[in-house]
């Protein structure tokens, strides 16, 4: 668990991070969102002490990180940045092995861990391990970046707009991979992003920053349903906010499992987003979709009127 307590950091008179108090539970994903200049990257860099706060405290499992040597602290955390920052003179293998090497793991353990991680991020070890970063595509490089950050089983993964530089389909596939990895490993993740959809897809919790101040926290659905102010509403799409809300909610929230009347056609998963359901309704020219809950096999119906929340 990571706790920020009245954390402040200034650059030349401007407060980039202003009295932020926030707690991120173990095993969850927290997305720091906000426009550029809102202080979200600064807040992230305070966690692994690439920067130190001017005021306030950050605690990792109850221990003030100001008392932990930066180098030791950073080796306990993974760090992924937008421009990846792979070491161009090292192979993929060696890049992934960076922190285990720094920690002095035995060679056999490192080799096994590298293979396991490449597999985890969806790269074939026998194909990619010996390559150099400049021989990989942008998406592959970012997968290596994630593998490198996870190498030493970090307690915490810090990600600074990790998928900002790759094309949209690759970005979605990386986001899905990350979500799956997080589910498997249970790593706590703090991710900085200005991409609304990414925040909604990944974020268990959103923390919205504005001019260095934390203005709202909550689940994506809660934040989108009740934005704290005009700026937050505008950030999440302004007039299109409703569409983003459809991404944040899933079919199960709005479907009726008690209506005995059956609808024909391929049923939609109760886990799917309302956006997907709306897309299908438009494509099929219908206002009702059959629904199935994959967990218990129960069937139901989603009405257009329910979908839009009437």
């Amino acid at each position: 668990m990571i706790e920020f307590e009245s954390v402040t950091r200034s650059f030349g008179g401007t407060r980039a991070v202003d009295e932020v108090t926030l707690a991120v539970e173990r095993g969850t994903i927290c997305a720091l969102v906000g426009t550029s200049g809102s202080g979200k990257s600064t807040l992230l860099r305070l966690v692994n002490r690439l920067l130190d706060p001017d005021g306030g405290r950050i605690r990792l499992d109850g221990v003030d990180i100001a008392g932990i040597a930066p180098v030791e602290l950073r080796r306990r955390m993974g760090y992924v940045i937008q421009s990846v920052g792979l070491f161009p003179h090292w192979t993929v293998e060696r890049n992934v092995a960076t922190v285990p090497l720094l920690l002095g793991w035995p060679a056999a353990r490192i080799a096994a861990r590298v293979a396991e991680l490449l597999d985890l991020v969806g790269l074939a070890p026998d194909v990619h391990a010996r390559r150099y970063p400049d021989e990989l595509s942008g998406g592959q490089q970012q997968r290596v970046g994630v593998a490198r950050a996870l190498a030493a089983d970090p307690e915490l993964l810090l990600m600074d707009e990790p998928f900002g530089a790759v094309d949209p389909p690759t970005r979605r596939s990386l986001q899905d991979s990350l979500a799956a990895i997080q589910k498997r490993t249970g790593t706590t993740i703090i991710i900085v992003t200005h991409d609304v959809e990414e925040a909604i897809r990944l974020g268990g919790t959103l923390a919205v920053l504005e001019h260095g101040r934390l203005v709202q926290t909550g689940t994506p659905a809660a934040v989108l349903a009740h934005p704290a102010n005009e700026q937050v509403a505008r950030f999440f799409g302004g007039p299109l906010l409703g569409l983003h809300l459809l991404q944040a909610l899933n079919v199960g929230n709005r479907a009726n499992f008690t209506d005995p009347s059956q609808v024909g056609g391929e049923p939609i998963d109760a886990d799917a987003s309302l956006e997907t359901a709306l897309a299908r309704m438009i494509a099929e020219g219908t206002s009702r979709l059959p629904v199935v809950n994959p967990a218990n096999g129960r069937r139901g119906v989603l009405e257009l009127a329910e979908l839009v929340g009437l």
């Binding site: 950073r74 421009s83 070491f87």
Partner: peptide, 15 residues
């Protein structure tokens, strides 16, 4: 040396 590489190195915990 790109800033991103230095940043990544610091983040990885190099002395």
């Amino acid at each position: 040396v790109p800033g991103a590489v230095l940043d990544a190195a610091d983040g990885a915990g190099f002395t």
